[in-house]
């Protein structure tokens, strides 16, 4: 009797977990269904799940037809909602991590997404030609630099997750990526980043001290960094950046702004 009760309890407890997680096949069947029906409201509700699963697929090792199809469908969902940057990101990831006949056949969607982001033909062709690398680490780098080249606000949280995952998996990230993360943290606009990011060196020197970066942007970055640190109560760091900021050469308005910031640093408010 005790055994029967034990088995029943086990079965009952097991059945609680039945719907705890849906299989990738189920998720794929669902997203394919709603995409083909074009139910925008349902696509919108499903996108957080789709993004989460797609990111998990990119960050996990191994290949598979379900993964390549799922990323493709996620891209279609984003495309249907007008989120072209994310559509392009998932198509790029699909091409880099799970190359297959599906990824080769999605040229139309890839080009349409890229053109919708106002990219020129040469840049789109360059993105399309990005090929998978031999190691997973290189693939992460390729995906980051290709997606970052789009300079879209939509992709900032996605790329942040990617950089942090890369850091947790491989221990370190290239300096250029660290600079990007810092610039994203201080909320530098992507359209401003577009104008100088290719001039940023892959060294430990902070961006506001790199000579090749235009002075206008060095000042802007230093100002934003000071504001960022002061907002978080890191007055010492803000003070040390303000010393570098002063050396760049300031006009009277900027000098007055710096003086005010120094007073705030001094009295910590």
């Amino acid at each position: 009797m005790k055994r029967i009760v034990g088995i029943l309890v086990f079965l009952a407890v097991s059945s609680f977990g039945l719907f705890a997680q849906f299989s990738d096949t189920t998720e794929l069947a669902f997203i394919q269904r709603i995409n083909s029906r074009g139910e925008v409201s349902l696509i919108e509700v499903n996108l957080p799940n789709a993004d989460e699963l797609s990111d998990a697929m990119i960050m996990s090792e191994g290949n598979g037809k379900i993964k390549t199809l799922y990323l493709y469908e996620t891209a279609i969902s984003h495309y249907m909602l007008g989120e072209y940057a994310k559509a392009l990101y998932y198509l790029l990831a699909d091409r880099l991590f799970f190359p297959s006949s599906v990824t080769e056949g999605c040229k139309g969607l890839f080009f349409n997404s890229a053109f919708a982001l106002n990219l020129d033909s040469a840049s789109v062709e360059r993105l399309w030609q990005v090929r998978p690398a031999s190691t997973l680490k290189e693939n992460y780098d390729k995906l980051f630099y290709a997606a970052e080249g789009v300079y879209s606000k939509e992709l900032v949280p996605v790329l942040k997750r990617l950089v942090l995952f890369r850091a947790s998996k491989y221990g370190s990230v290239p300096y250029k990526m660290q600079h990007w993360l810092f610039l994203a943290d201080i909320h530098l606009k992507q359209r401003q980043l577009r104008k100088f990011y290719d001039k940023v060196y892959d060294t430990a020197v902070p961006v506001y001290l790199q000579n090749d970066v235009p002075v206008k942007f060095r000042k802007k970055i230093a100002r934003k960094a000071i504001k960022f640190y002061m907002k978080r109560g890191a007055y010492r760091e803000a003070c040390s950046i303000s010393k570098h900021y002063k050396k760049i050469g300031l006009n009277p308005v900027q000098a007055f702004g710096l003086m005010m910031k120094k007073i705030r640093c001094k009295f910590k408010f």
């Binding site: 998720e27 069947a29 669902f30 269904r33 509700v45």
Partner: peptide, 12 residues
């Protein structure tokens, strides 16, 4: 969404 997924899971 979740009911549909449960149905699909069952179908699969």
């Amino acid at each position: 969404k979740y009911n549909m997924k449960m149905g699909l899971e069952k179908e699969i």
